[in-house]
Design a protein around this nucleic acid. Structure first.
Lengths: 256, 256
DNA sequence: CGACACGTTGAGATATATCAAACGTGGTGG
DNA sequence: CCACCACGTTTGATATATCTCAACGTGTCG
């Protein structure tokens, strides 16, 4: 399986060519696995390479003075997790694994050469950082205007759509190997309340979250409850490219 | 006064040269004034030019199904308000004026030529969209982890720092020509509650918001209350470049 | 002077947090 | 293989922050 197989897959207007995928693979110096709950990049540290998430999930987060944490982004396979730093050199937040992950490393010098030679590819990677921005705006909407059930419904709808785009969800069921506390930190809630929200979603027949899997019983209903509309993801038409069957996201504990 | 005078001013590592400012000015086709409460760009509409905010304030916002609005960004003079669309062609949110504004228009064809000829300038404009992203993450933190007083304190601290960077605040006092409802839409609160928050801030001696002006009595205290740290703004060292004295932001009603 | 938008205040309703405890369950070591 | 441990989940009771609704005040502009 190609390491870059999922990069920008099914994103409207900026899909990568096979040649571009190969070029990115050529810039990869290293592929690593990291255990769950480890930081990949820390705030303020100088970054020297870009990181492509191949398998697993990672979060971007900000801690406050009292140890409370807010997720400001979450990444699924195919996402670059720290491209921001390529331009800014340092990150204003932390990036940490939620699950064991496989990541591919692209040293900046190799990336420099690649993007200089291929301005079209540079443009597409810029786009991908703009897509991150669009997602962040949707998260702002979620936190600012939705109630707790709406926030979780919106979050789950988003992850469903994003996993579907990269072939890891069939729209009705997808892996979500994170804890209710993680969900709480993403949605600006407490884990206790997230638990009650999950019960509400279950009892209203929208979805069930059990053993790291979400079963979506009523997708339209879930999306409606979360005031979710996928336009901000700039996805290609639904009905994702076949080729990769729905898969899983690594969950077993790996070496730290 | 140069239209681009405030663009990327006092931003660490990516300040523009005088020549680059002149080049941007050369790409400006038009300068317009627009009244308060008018949309500049609407969601989903194809965009054909970039917009530089020269004077006034504009917001980026998302409306929900029930007419509630969430601000996902706010812009001060010197900001590009829709560079995202240059890459994505459409915006996933709306951009509307909060006050009467002066904006400069840069048609994409002119921008294309400019950025092709000047990759270094292209890089800096890309950076500026990444700075927007960093600010959005700070907003996520604000909404997800701060209480109402903290949110408003954080918001005001941010605006103070950003206006200071472009010479429109001296750190102790700055113009804020928006309503308490706008503030509420930015902070995920109701306008009634924002009113009470302002009273709290006043009574605790942190700051006073009156007649479209914020007087910061205790900057350190305000920033502490909002758990604010300006690192995400990537500002150059404090002590802003002299040259432009503290000014105002247009407030008088203009023609729609 | 009057209208209208914005700001201010109060009382009461409600959503979510907090605190505390019990329950499951998968992994680990004896 | 079993027992235990750690971590995550679930539930209950109570506290509290914020919203909602409603009314009244105030400044600005025509």
């Amino acid at each position: 399986m190609m390491l870059t197989e999922r990069v920008l897959r099914n994103r409207r207007g900026i899909a990568l060519t096979q040649e571009e995928r190969a070029l990115i693979e050529g810039a990869i110096s290293d592929v690593r696995t990291i255990g769950a709950r480890h930081d990949v990049v820390s705030e303020g540290v100088r970054v020297r390479h870009a990181t492509l998430l191949v398998d697993g999930m990672v979060s971007r987060y900000i801690d406050d003075r009292h140890g409370m944490r807010q997720l400001v982004g979450i990444h699924v396979p195919g996402d670059f997790v720290d491209l921001q730093a390529y331009a800014l050199r340092r990150l204003d937040h932390n990036v940490g694994t939620l699950t064991p992950v496989t990541i591919a490393i692209l040293p900046y010098p190799a990336l420099d050469r690649l993007l200089e030679a291929r301005p079209e590819l540079a443009r597409k990677l810029w786009y991908s950082t703009l897509l991150d921005g669009a997602t962040q705006r949707a998260w702002l909407f979620r936190l600012g205007r939705l109630d707790s059930v709406g926030r979780v419904a919106h979050f789950l709808s988003e992850i469903n759509a994003r996993l579907e785009a990269v072939g890891l969800s069939d729209g009705a069921r997808f892996p979500l190997p994170i804890t209710q506390s993680d969900l709480a930190e993403a949605c600006g809630l407490t884990s206790v309340h997230v638990n009650r929200v999950m019960r509400t979603l279950r009892e209203s027949g929208l979805c069930v979250f059990r053993s790291a899997t979400v079963d979506v019983a009523d997708r339209a209903g879930l999306e409606r409850r979360g005031d979710f509309s996928p336009n901000y993801l700039y996805l290609a038409r639904r009905a994702p490219t076949p080729g990769t069957s729905t898969g899983t996201i690594a969950k077993a504990r790996a070496t730290p």
